[in-house]
Amino acid sequence: MTSAAQSAARANPILRLGKSVQGALFRYAGLRGYILFSPTLLVLVGAMCIPVGMLVIYSFWTQKYIEIDTTLTLANYLQIFNKTSYMLLIGKSILISTAVTTATVVLAYPIAYFIAFRVHQHKIVWLILITVPFWTSYLLRVFSWKVILGYNGVINSALKWLGIVDQPLAFLLHNPTAVIITLAHAWAPIAILPIFVSLEKIDRSLLEAATDLGDGPVARFLRVTLPLSIPGVVAASMLVFIPTVGDYITPQLVGGPDGLMVGNLMHAMFFKANNWPLGSALAILSAAAITVTSLAIWFLTKHARERAK
């Protein structure tokens, strides 16, 4: 830069400001971090904090026919606590999601293990193959289970054709088990990836060291591989558990009357019953239940890790 241009830059206040902002960005890594973070922060505040805040406020209001009474009250919460069927539904949703989480993690672990330890080339191909179900819509995947488990579905037709049963089995669809199978299948890829990452990170010489110190394959797995992959298992559990509690599409399509979950009730409150305040209170309570259960999973695994030593 020539000295003339330099003095022009010094004289121009906008250019000077630009220079000092540039300087500050160069000097302070924290500031750069906040700027990188700011788009996400805006979305979070706009699309999450505000709606959740509104949900909280709504839950303390009440629906009076078509109008909303904005007096702050705990009436919705009391109504839910007093209505055993609501509480049972929340409890059942937690149980179903726990079963889904357990099934998903138990099924995902061997696949993740296989890719991490047995596949030596083209791991990425395997990982992409695992995400293939995600390429189709969630709704289609749920429907496909309806086709598989239905009264005239794939399994029943096959059993009839083979002569194993005379009448189609009715217990395959429209019950909590169908919900668990469908959700476990839908969320499997989400569970495989974090477990794979935690297994992949394990230093192979640790496994050799365990063998060297006398462990057979089973002892080595239980004492080294499993404890070191627990972070991945916890992450997978959370990723599957939290969203499945509130799911209402799968229970609606394959759950039948017994397989309904709290998401269906919330859906009904916000739409058919047009009772937003009660729906909000349900949402807040199930979020609280999810938080408590997640913390319980976290503490239990931590405790188990301490004991496994």
Binding site: S205, E208, A210, T211, D212, L213, D215, L228, K309
Partner: peptide, 29 residues
């Protein structure tokens, strides 16, 4: 196999179990 040999190894990167403390590492075998 290594677990049936009266031989033990000190690995190049030492292969210390990160989830165990010093005592637990030493007592592992």
């Amino acid at each position: 196999p290594p677990n049936r040999r009266p031989v033990n190894m000190v690995f190049q990167n030492y292969a210390i179990f990160p989830h165990l403390n010093v005592r637990e590492n030493i007592g592992y075998g």
